[in-house]
Design a protein around this nucleic acid. Sequence first.
DNA 1: CTGAAAGCGCTAACAA
DNA 2: TTGTTAGCGCTTTCAG
Lengths: 344, 344
Amino acid sequence: MAPTPHGASSTISDVARRAGVSPATVSRVLNSDYPVSAATRARVSEAVRELSYVRNAHARALRATSTAVVGVVIHDVSDPFFSEIVAGIQEVATANHKLVVLCNSPRDLASELQYLDLLRGQRVDAVILTGGAIRVPGHERELGKQARALRLEGSRLILCGRRAPGVDSILADNVGGAQLLGRYLIERGHRRIAEVTGPVGFSTSNERSAGLRNALREAGVGPEPVAVISGAFSRDGGYEATRQLLRGNIAFTAIFAANDLMAVGALAALREAGRAVPADVSLVGFDDIPTMRDVLPGITTVRVPMREMGRQAMARALPGTARRAVAQLLPVQLVERMTVAAVA
Amino acid sequence: MAPTPHGASSTISDVARRAGVSPATVSRVLNSDYPVSAATRARVSEAVRELSYVRNAHARALRATSTAVVGVVIHDVSDPFFSEIVAGIQEVATANHKLVVLCNSPRDLASELQYLDLLRGQRVDAVILTGGAIRVPGHERELGKQARALRLEGSRLILCGRRAPGVDSILADNVGGAQLLGRYLIERGHRRIAEVTGPVGFSTSNERSAGLRNALREAGVGPEPVAVISGAFSRDGGYEATRQLLRGNIAFTAIFAANDLMAVGALAALREAGRAVPADVSLVGFDDIPTMRDVLPGITTVRVPMREMGRQAMARALPGTARRAVAQLLPVQLVERMTVAAVA
DNA sequence: CTGAAAGCGCTAACAA
DNA sequence: TTGTTAGCGCTTTCAG
């Protein structure tokens, strides 16, 4: 009954002994790509079953060039933005018989680098870094260095949602999308727009802010929003930021939130404060996460193709897709719902 | 500049050569728990940095007993129920310097077993299987067997959200919670309750159905709901099931949905059909996923401590917590919101 | 078609 | 304090 005597897994030699063949032969039937007599094959398979044997992936990895696993670093598992990206990654990973190792690095450069080393130690076939990052010149250089090191090791680095010079990346058009949203508000008469932005210095925050400012500038409304409050990229972050905004006594007719989660938080804060949306205040979000179908009133936003970003990132992680580093920018799309009204 | 000559990672010998010491010495400074002169240590560290060297985790795993990684199998990354559990797992995994490998098995027994083998091959310290499963006697026996095999290998199997004889598990009180919800409806005069349940034969569906039936029976309302429609455990599954229910021309005053996602779908379907909630139809969900704070009208539900389940599951995966298999049942709690009205 | 043997990168005895 | 050596479990020449 017991597969092995004392707390150890059974090995290829155990199987060989039981089947009365050599370890090499067992390896050959396991890899099936080599002529082995049907009888031997059967006896080996039988022994494998009896011992409930599974090959030691580490021993294999030590000889093989590929481990068939890719590492994915995300900022937050329970943020739908990342869930969607991961779903896209998994989709094509599974189709290509790759295992996905997920790591959580809470928007923190140091731990991200640490995970990168860790994954490098696992000899993963590729590392995908998702989401934005604090923009620190030294960090981007470091990423470039890591990308080169991985390349030398036969692996690769892919960025999904951020860029760095010389590194492969899949991006959403954050600037363009924010600009679309800005114009949309301005066309409806909004001039006093407040911005509820994400963490300071974070690339995603920066890009979306820049898009809004572009729209403001091109319409001659002035270069800046009437107020800028930053918060965490979460429902609670948006809620808190909006409460702070409301305490500020600055007049505004619209809120531009850095993402949908924050917009949902803003909505809750506005409701609590007795400000009707969109009658009193207009509101826009960003990303179009799946739950947006079900919050009321439906929040006008910009759709980021999260799942597709994941798919494409994973596609780049596949061996066939070598070539040099390219930044691929995916288009976004305005999703008009019910949280923007025209001002008189 | 190039760390290694030709597409291979640098090894401990490369570092040793560069630092002018033996591989053993390098290993010793890397593991830091052994007396090495400061000068040597410095030279080695320098060489490590220059070569951007990282230890090969597979070579280590081949000697060591622990790999410091745990495997987690979930059904759907973008389902908040699983995201929350994973968040809990990650929380205590990170605190204990464990890496988490996430696998997606789409509610399919065979692929789950396949992942189990795969993870076993990775010599993970533990495997956590999350969510329910189709109840097939053979499968539970198979799980018991796998649990024993893992134990023999010094690893372990933990179930989170389901049970199997002889296997460690963390459970939410699905039956009790559903019974609470059933009573709540009945106390408010509901007699004609329709059930929008999950996949047929799935343990989670079964348990929640059983709880509802308990409530029905104890109140003498009859053993069965007036209608039972099953669908996928998703927003769209709930939506479709509810549309089907509405086509059925069966009178009902309340819908009991198997989880929140399905309840949200039901809400959308009811709205489309012009049925007001709760004026025309009452509705309850299950789980209290985070997004429930933000859907309107707020859906009455039962809170399942998902994150805590993840934490406890991961705690069991830690070495200290050996002992024999125990099924731990976590309490749930009614969350009263606005989707249940009294019937005349 | 099958077996023997070497070696992947690392660590842990054992020597020095 | 440091070096030498053996071996973890597997695959892959090279012989037979």
